[in-house]
Amino acid sequence: MQDTITSLINPADEKGLYLEGSALDTLQQYFKTGALRVKAASQIGESADSIISTTVEKSLLYGDITLPGGNMYPTRRYAACLRDLAYFLRYATYAMLAADASILDERILNGLKDTYSSLGVPIEPTIQAVQAMKEVVTQRVGSEAGQEMSVYLDHIVSGLS
């Protein structure tokens, strides 16, 4: 996986350069947000289960998708949906910490759309759930860290669209 630091060091090394100028500025900006990112990752990790339940309640629970014939019925598929949302949350958190989306692409998004269409998982409700997750996460971590998380949750949305 890439992270912001590595993605700045590698091209500098290709040219035999120290980190300087705009690359160093970018790194400095990232360092400045480090404490915020670590705190948010800690809060999200501690309350992941409750973030997922609230997300489902806000987006999927009261719709047709949980009824017979829906893709969250029976319970086995409900549980699979919870598991996938938990993956989204965890990998978005990793990406937010790294300030780099590559781990999301590598571990979640590559091939996801095809997998979902072959399993008959509807994309539209999935996207609604991720949108709801953005709100729930922002409530838990505050607006500044929430915005950072939204960057990577939006990345999931665009990967599914």
Binding site: M1, Q2, D3, T4, I5, T6, I9, G34, V38, A41, S42, I44, G45, A48, R90, T93, Y94, L97, A98, I103, R107
Partner: peptide, 25 residues
């Protein structure tokens, strides 16, 4: 980086970062 390292470590264990890792960061 240390960030990538603790993320990869957590990923291998299928979990969020642990408290030691968070403190390291």
């Amino acid at each position: 980086s240390i960030v990538a390292k603790v993320i990869a470590q957590s990923d291998r264990a299928d979990r969020f970062l642990g408290s030691t890792e968070l403190t390291q960061l």
